[in-house]
Design a binder for these strands. Structure first.
Lengths: 347, 347
DNA sequence: CTGTTAGCGCGTTCAG
DNA sequence: CTGAACGCGCTAACAG
């Protein structure tokens, strides 16, 4: 490793028979270099398989060519897709992507305090961090521009969907099918990351109110487990719902598992709708509200790239559309249906 | 942005009333600083919310404090979990994680040629890239140490599982249950990333050979779709298998979808086993071979951190254990079972 | 159009 | 134990 010292710019200059600054200009595509000379330099660089050291150049330009992406989790489908979207767009902008998992607000605080980002990246993209105003202000202490992805923040560059409207639409779908006893599964954990969840809940409540139906919200912890627990609770009340709207596909899948194990047919016994449009929803024929996650990543990266390239702050608000994907997990309720219809002889 | 210029080390020095180099030593935890002085410096730095510029320091130390992670995909469960594992361990080592998606060998080639990594990271971790020798050699041209995660490479630091052994165990499980007509679903695409797939297939074939059973391999494209297509083919032969071993949970899920839509009960009509131990396998009660993906990430990051810290190349081979998770998708075959038993009156 | 001269912010000698 | 000089590899003003 050590024997093969990397070539420096002066090596290229020597080989091409020009000066250092000419090499710099040529490699950078800066104007003011004769085409022939430029070609010479490029060839010399290629022959030495030379690459400019970003560290050195950013020391003088002040730009690092890197952006940081902050995500609350790395594992869920959503974040993989979002990162893939960003990756695509960032590559086009020749920006590298630093990924940090910030599990909770406390950790975010730690990050901001230790500031490992400052002078290390040009911009940070916060994905689904669902921060409140105070936390956003904290991020400012980094002294870096911040782009919000999957969260709408007024006055800040952000890419988002209309959670409330989409949730209202999903609820309306169930109402239109003839359901009236529609439950909403909502999650919340201690860390306090739950903005979009709140917005979706609001959309559900609006639609229910407009229809004159009684809202019925159960709150559990996030993830499959929460969905399973919530479904268990819903199946234990005296008058169970005929349809369930889960805050996310993840949560819906937990609910589906419980229904399957209870031998309750979907959608005959109960309709289920999720949110996200994950590919697992497709596998399970789950009706869901799809959001364009990949494109959200792309657009967020685009905003970041713009900010880095122009050096100007931005307040762009990018709202992306959602799509209701109706599949086999939702259908009209059976007339005067009762969940116990199969098991109860006295039906 | 511009008004809030970041403080420099000299600012800290001035505030603490010491010289530049003393600040450097103090901040770095280097020996040769009086405790009282160090504390002073630390306080001054905190008050200015100062952080050393990695760019500047790496210019002189030659270390960037960054590692690059190369993944073929960002979206699948596997990679999210692996990245999460790395993230954990890298944070402990105070290394930042640059993530690059390299979809196929061609793209990898592009990366290696444009060398955006050189002098930009200290080490690269290749996750599940399933490279052949030539491609590995190509990576060497980066002039950087490479750690392999989820691929065994002799003489190189690598973290992996025993794919062959695990696949043999899974096949043995089915054989022990009494199955003899066991199919294997194998995937392959044009890009040529398929090492572990080959290894698993070999394990399957070994177990079948030992049992004197006839191997039956169908090959399709990767992902859910491939699994679905493969299952379709398996259901269309004259004597369908009573059990299916899918190369991965992803593929198994595609197969499951086809079975569900065909109204074939699992495991009554057909047993299915996957590979990976994804949490979706759990949701679907899919028997699977679990691999410790998170830990693979952790261990790979550890190898990388070691190499960076010691500066010495490594040839560590870390083999991690797999676990067969028996769930409800596998069971003994029905005596003289026939897939058409329910539909065929002449049974 | 090209070369020369200064630093960018820090770590590392080496004297004190 | 501390400070002053030098240089890491590169870009940005200038001068030619």
């Amino acid at each position: 490793m050590a024997p093969a010292e990397h070539p420096r710019m002066s090596d290229v200059a020597e080989r091409a028979g020009v000066s250092l600054s000419t090499v710099s200009r040529a490699l950078r595509g800066a104007p003011g270099v004769a085409p022939a000379v430029r070609e010479n330099v490029l060839r010399a660089a290629a022959e030495l398989s030379y690459v400019v050291s970003r560290g050195a150049s950013s020391l003088v330009t002040g730009r690092t060519g890197r952006i940081a992406v902050l995500v609350p989790f790395l594992q869920p489908w959503f974040f993989g897709v979002a990162l893939a979207g960003m990756n695509t767009r960032l590559r086009a902008a020749e920006l590298d992507m630093l990924v940090y998992q910030v599990g909770d607000v406390e950790e975010l605080d730690g990050y901001v305090r230790s500031l490992p980002l400052r002078s290390n990246v040009d911009c940070v993209v916060a994905v689904s961090l669902d921060l409140d105003e105070g936390e956003i202000k904290q991020l400012d202490e980094l002294g870096l521009p911040v782009v919000f992805c999957s969260q709408r923040v007024e006055g800040r560059p952000s890419v988002f969907i209309d959670n409330t409207g989409a949730a209202r639409g999903a609820t309306q779908h169930l109402l239109n099918l003839g359901h009236t006893r529609i439950a909403y599964i909502h999650t919340r954990d201690q860390t306090g990351f739950s903005w979009s969840s709140q917005e979706r809940r609001r959309g559900y409540e609006q639609a229910m109110a407009e229809a004159g139906a009684e809202p019925f919200v159960v709150s559990e912890r996030p993830g499959h487990d929460g969905g399973a627990l919530a479904m268990g609770r819903l199946l234990s009340v005296s008058h169970p719902p005929t349809a369930v709207f889960a805050e996310s596909d993840d949560v819906a899948m937990g609910a589906l598992r419980v229904l399957r194990r209870s031998r309750l047919e979907i959608p005959e016994a109960i309709s289920v709708i999720g949110f996200d449009g994950s590919d697992f929803a497709e596998l399970l024929d789950l009706t869901t509200v799809a959001q364009p996650v990949f494109e959200m990543g792309v657009r967020a990266a685009e905003l970041a790239a713009d900010i880095v390239e122009t050096g100007r702050p931005s307040t762009a608000q990018v709202e992306l559309p959602t799509t209701l994907l109706v599949r086999q997990s939702t259908a009209a309720p059976r007339r005067s249906r009762n969940l116990t219809v199969r098991a109860a002889p006295h039906s």
